[in-house]
Every structure is written in structure tokens, then in C-alpha cells.
Design a protein around this nucleic acid. Sequence first.
DNA 1: GTCTATACTCGGATAGAC
DNA 2: GTCTATCCGAGTATAGAC
Lengths: 188, 188
Amino acid sequence: MARPQTIDDEDLLARLAEVFRDVGYAAASLSDLSAASGLQRASLYHRFPGGKEQMAQEVLAAALARFSEKILAPLAGGGTPAARLKIAAANLDKYYASGRKSCLLNLFAAPGVEGGPFAPAIKSAFEALIAAFAALAREDGRSAAQARRRAARAVMLLQGSLVLSRGLGKSDPFKSVLADLPEDLLGE
Amino acid sequence: MARPQTIDDEDLLARLAEVFRDVGYAAASLSDLSAASGLQRASLYHRFPGGKEQMAQEVLAAALARFSEKILAPLAGGGTPAARLKIAAANLDKYYASGRKSCLLNLFAAPGVEGGPFAPAIKSAFEALIAAFAALAREDGRSAAQARRRAARAVMLLQGSLVLSRGLGKSDPFKSVLADLPEDLLGE
DNA sequence: GTCTATACTCGGATAGAC
DNA sequence: GTCTATCCGAGTATAGAC
């Protein structure tokens, strides 16, 4: 695929993200990234002088920005808590392709000896989602402690459901967790 | 470390397992495995003609055997459901070092393009744990459907707590899930 | 800004001595 | 059964033309 033309940055990051999501950070080779993006390896280095790590860093940043827009913003936006949660859940379902796609947070958290250059971003992303869920539960009448507990459990159920869905080769676990989310977070 | 002596097979697999658990399959190099085991690369090939993949396969098999002995057997053994669960939980806490160690099932499930040579073992391990949890809940009075649902959620909470613990750099999520396990599985 | 070509390192794997 | 030595390919990264 000859490509002497400029490539849109957003599109480029999306294509690279797909590779990282499919095989993880360590297993993603520059050849993979080159093939997926349509750019030669050298061209990738022109855009990302820091190499693979910088690509992953920017992919992660872009994914978190999208996450903030599609999940966190709706959770904090207008409407009843249940209505907001419904929007967020629909977007989660789309982003994770109903459980068939992995979570970058899980894939990038595998430590390559050191603590990992992605740890700070991952940590703050988890904290932000827990906080958003907790605020929703709190607003719906739960105590602060209850809300936080439920929020943390919801995040763990989501992550665990992605692991289990992948492990079992079915999307059922993810879909069922998503369906139970309103009850788990706001119910009773 | 000169090592002209025979090495115990169980010990060898344990040392190799540590590497895989720390960095995952793709990032684990033969140099890492050589260093951790004290054997030269060529010596590893003598024991594992199939190379890294065979090492991982046998490490996984050994881990699952240990898992069966330390977790599944106690769950199916004698005593009240609560007492059995307590034993299994204590062993889970030990195996995962209170949330500081990852789960091989999660790490080996990252697909390297193909479905992965570990998928069958991973799938059956998840199914076995869910079945064991479900049997326990069933015995404690839950309906079959309720028991299965709770069992699946318990597995997802455990996996999710390991992901979250790693992501946050704290062991609290794992420990709290472990503490809530009796209530989640048998309670109400 | 993208390409072709290439340098260089590292990882996986084998041969053969002891 | 373990070692030293080595091969080969893949992987990262750079140089320089267009």
C-alpha cells in the first residue's frame, strides 16, 4: 500500500491502538505497527522519535481522552443517575466490542521488570472511573462508604469480565456484568 | 552461578513460572528464563525441546495442578461450605501474594494473533473454578441458577481485583474481595 | 513526510565438547 | 545433563535519498 500522503493523526493512533489491544505491548512489533498503519517503520520513527514506547504512550493518552469523553462525561452529565449510567454502559459495550476486545489498562499493566512507564496513567484512569461510579451511587442515595465500595466492585467486575470473556472465548460474562451494572451500582 | 548438577524438576518449573508471572509470556526472554533458573539456554532446550512455548505450557500445567490441589480440592473436601471456603481463600491469598502477583490465566490469555496455544487449558481452568464455587453455593442452599451466577461473579471479582491491585499499586482491592468472598458466595 | 536501505542488537534455537 | 560457541532471524533504530 503506497502511501505518499499525509495521514491523519487521530486515524494513525487508532490503527496503532488496534495492534496494542490485540497483542499487548511486548508482543507488538514495529512490523505489526507498520503494517497496521500503512507507514514504513522509518516513517513511524519520524512521528514518534521515542519509538514503540512513545507510540504506546500516545495511544494510551488518546484512548484515555476518548474514555473520558464517552464514559466519564456521560456519568457526570445531565439526567437521572440511571439514565446516565445507561449511556455509559452503551458506550462501554461499544468500546469493548461486547467483550471481544481487551482493555489497554490491563494489557499495559504487565510490568517489564520496572514499574512500567504507563503505571501513572493507568492508576489515574482507574481512580477516575471509580470516582465517577462512586459519585453516581452517592447521588442516588448511597452512603459515601457504600458508594465507594460499589464503585470499586463495579470496576473489578468489568475488568474481570473482560478477562473471563477472553479466557472462555465467550462474550457472555462481559455482557452480563454490563446488564447488571445498574442494579450493582444503584440498586436496593 | 556454576551449576553442573541436576536440578529438581519441580523447583525448575517454579523458577520459570516466576518469570512468566512477572513479565508475561511475550516479554519473557530465554535470557530471563536462563538467569532465573540458573541453567544456560542450551540446557533449557535439553529439558524443553519445544522451546519457550513448551516451558510455558509445562509451567501452566504445573500451576494448574497446584491450583487443583490447593484450591479446588479444599472447596470439594470435608467440612461446612464456610470452612472449606476459608481454606481456599487462605490459599488464594498465599498464591497471589495478597494481590502482588499476577494470574497466569490472565497473562497467558493475551492473544498473539492466533487463538493462543494456552487457550484450552485456560478455559478449562476457569470452568473448573466456577463449577467448584457454584457447587459450594448450591450446597449452601442457593438455587442452581443463583449458585452459578454467584460463582461466575466471584471469579470475575478475583480476576478484576488482581488487575486493579496491579493498576493501583495497592493490594487492597484483592484483599477486600477475598474478605467478602464468603458473603458474596454464600451470604443472605 | 515518506520512502529504501542498512546498521546493530537481541532473542530463539542448534551443534558439539565435556 | 550441562556447558561454550555459534548461527540465524527478528526486532529496534538510523542514515540519507526523494
